[in-house]
């Protein structure tokens, strides 16, 4: 089923089907802030549709409003130019803009949730916007609570540490960066968050680029999908944040 890997776990194929397979029910999601966000954040007031080629997995309930795991898989669509992740009732409705470039249009990430509502991934392909989304029920507070790391006196220890691994057989790349991802909404904690991340090939040429905004979770882990030639690595990873810090790493298979 698309590029979703739930079936690699025993019983996972049936489990995923029982979960709904990440398919979007447009009757439930043509609501909320969608018309406004379509106009303001995608720049296209009218034309959109859903498509089984774009699947989005998200839990029905945010068990932890600081870490809501999401996978947006647009590999069933042709020629995706970019994917835009928006959260309907977030104080920061624009979460991520993904330019897949030479990577495949799949993005795994976690977000903070301030209030229950839909999360959407919209893919631009051939001048048309395809939207996949899910409703996430949440107690909220994820964007306005201080990062957990600030509860420790040594929060700067390990700041920026980058972890990553390539799986050439599936094309997966997972990248984690230790970062508080402060939104600026928590009392006395100024905004300090990642702003962009770039993947490069062995020659240093760009593979893909991700624009990052406040809702991305603390200590984010991102998942990408690379074609076989690039998935053999090595892949360079660079990132920046609002305070001018730069982060860099290199992962080989």
């Amino acid at each position: 089923m698309a590029a979703i890997l739930s079936h690699l776990l025993p019983g996972g194929e049936a489990g995923l089907a029982g979960f709904g397979g990440g398919l979007t029910r447009p009757d439930r999601l043509d609501s909320g802030m969608w018309d406004l966000h379509r106009a303001d954040l995608l720049g296209v007031p009218g034309v959109w549709r859903t498509d089984p080629g774009l699947r989005l997995l998200a839990p029905g309930n945010a068990e932890d409003a600081r870490h809501v795991p999401v996978l947006a898989d647009a590999t069933g669509l042709d020629r995706v130019e970019r994917m835009v992740v928006t959260i309907d009732y977030s104080p920061f409705p624009l979460a991520l803009v993904f330019h897949p470039g030479r990577a495949l249009p799949l993005l795994g990430f976690g977000v903070k949730y301030e209030i229950a509502g839909p999360i959407r991934a919209s893919a631009l392909t051939g001048g048309e916007w395809i939207m996949g989304g899910a409703f996430v029920d949440a107690m909220g507070g994820g964007c306005s609570a201080p990062a957990v790391t600030h509860a420790r006196p040594d929060w700067q220890d390990g700041f920026g540490e980058m972890r990553a691994r390539l799986w050439p057989e599936t094309g997966r790349l997972r990248v984690g960066i230790r970062h508080p991802m402060d939104t600026g909404l928590a009392d006395g904690v100024p905004a300090h968050h990642l702003t962009d991340l770039t993947l490069t090939d062995a020659a240093g040429a760009e593979i893909a680029r991700l624009e990052i905004h406040e809702p991305l979770e603390e200590n984010p882990v991102l998942t990408f999908l690379l074609p076989p030639d690039l998935a053999r690595g090595p892949v360079g990873i660079t990132a920046r944040d609002t305070s001018g810090f730069r982060f860099s790493g290199r992962v080989a298979a």
């Binding site: 739930s6 690699l8 795991p69 996978l71 799986w167």
Partner: peptide, 20 residues
Amino acid sequence: DAAASLGLTPAEALAAGPMP
């Protein structure tokens, strides 16, 4: 552990449902 070492995202591990 299996899900993490296979490169799954937490969303995929969650959607896969419990051990049969």
